[in-house]
Amino acid sequence: MSNAAARILYIDDDEGLRRLAQRALTRRGFAVSLAASGTEGVEMVRGGGYDLIAVDHYMPGQDGLTTLNLLHALPDCPPVVYVTGSEETRIAVAALKAGAADYVVKSVGDDFFDLLASSFQQALEKVRLRSAKEAVEEELRASNARLEALLGEVNHRVSNSLQLVSAFVHMQASMLSDTVAKGALLETQQRIQAIAQVHRRLYTSGDVEFVSMDDYLRALVAELEQTWSTPASPRTLRLTAEPIKLKTDRAVSLGVIVNELVTNACKYAYGPASGGEVRINLAHVSDAHFHLSVEDDGIGMPQDGKIQGTGLGTRLVRAMASSLQAKIDFDPAHAGVRTTLSVPY
């Protein structure tokens, strides 16, 4: 803001000093209005139109500090420079605590008005910088809102595209008579669904950066139970998950791991004509790690250590665990199979 645009209200009960201040400050480029008392000054400021206010300390009836408090009670009060003829530190401190932008000790001669004009400039510059900062922050908020909306739309489209691919894979599987190929395609479809579920969570939760893993796993486990539990071979999936949030890529990796471990348990832990339970647990351990475990009470690992099926699921689990920098442990004391991952945040 330039001096020519700066409108100053000078509040002082000394008429001679008011007129002198008006002339001196006008010469320095300010547009100066005058008020003869704190009460008059407050009413003038209430009407608006001022960029800065100067308030004298010693005034009869309503002194400068009282006037300062009344001014700051008004909405959008301009900055106030406090003027006093006293060099007492307590008055300056009281004025600054009450919200004055600066204070100037009154003296005789041009040095006082030079100092007053300099104080005005600094106070107005602070206002300009604060306004510029608020404008930039508002623009950043608007920009972030636009980016979040765009990212939400991207996640929506990715989810829809993955759903379409999943539907194509399901259609292809339904046309096959080979049970091995059919099963492989259906497992591929389930993997696609696990990834699509992440993007679905991102655009429906309002948070486009992080996935709430408890909500995500709840939906994923429900889909897996619907896929693998049949009247002839019932499977019960029990999930216990603490509210942990992960970024998208880590959520995808963990989702694929859960998908593969649960799928393996549903396929191999129990006989084709018997029921069984698979338990999934996600728990916060420390500020550095969380644990994921998937366990069953089935037949356990093969004695010869040979991987059942194609081994693709196991390779996927190890690859995803590596991307998460997670440590995989198998509990040999557990009756069935218990797989635990220690994952760094």
Rank of each mutant, 00 (worst) to 15 (best):
K133Q: 04
E138I: 01
G109P: 01
V169Q: 00
Q190D: 10
A167P: 00
E139V: 06
S143I: 04
A142C: 01
R200D: 14
H199V: 02
L185S: 00
A95K: 12
S205C: 08
S177M: 08
S174I: 01
R146V: 11
A117K: 01
V93N: 12
R128A: 14
R141P: 00
A132S: 07
A196M: 04
M175H: 05
S174A: 14
L129C: 08
D215F: 13
L150K: 06
H170T: 08
R90D: 14
M175K: 03
L185R: 00
Y216E: 11
E153N: 10
R200K: 03
R128L: 13
A149V: 10
A101C: 12
G183W: 01
H199Q: 07
I192N: 07
F112K: 06
R128H: 12
S177N: 07
D215W: 07
V105I: 12
V136H: 02
V165K: 01
H156A: 13
H156L: 14
L96Y: 12
V136A: 01
Q197G: 05
T204C: 01
V136E: 11
A95S: 14
G99R: 11
T188F: 04
S166M: 00
V208Y: 06
A181I: 04
L150T: 11
D214E: 15
S212N: 09
R191I: 04
Y203Q: 06
Q193C: 02
E139I: 05
A132T: 09
V211I: 13
A135L: 11
F120G: 05
A94W: 12
S143P: 00
A181T: 03
E187N: 13
D178N: 13
M213I: 10
K106M: 07
E209F: 10
F168L: 09
Q190R: 05
I195E: 01
L220Y: 05
T179M: 13
L116M: 09
V180C: 04
S118Q: 15
K126L: 13
V165S: 05
F210T: 10
H156F: 12
E148F: 15
S161Y: 10
L202S: 03
Q189F: 03
V104Q: 09
D207C: 12
I192D: 03
S177K: 05
V105L: 02
D214W: 11
A98H: 04
S205T: 05
V165C: 02
L129V: 14
A219D: 15
E137Q: 13
A196C: 02
V154N: 14
Q189P: 00
E125C: 08
T188N: 07
Q122T: 11
G99N: 08
D111E: 14
L140S: 00
G206W: 07
G206E: 10
Q189S: 10
A100W: 12
A117D: 08
A95P: 12
S159M: 09
R200T: 14
N144R: 15
A173G: 00
A167I: 00
R146D: 05
G99T: 06
R141G: 02
V211T: 14
M171G: 11
E139F: 02
L217N: 04
L217I: 06
L129D: 09
N144H: 09
Q121R: 15
E138V: 01
Q122Y: 07
S161K: 03
F113N: 02
R191M: 06
D215T: 12
D102H: 15
L115M: 10
S161G: 13
K133D: 06
L176M: 06
A167G: 01
R200P: 03
D207N: 15
A101G: 09
K126C: 09
A145H: 09
T188P: 00
I192Y: 01
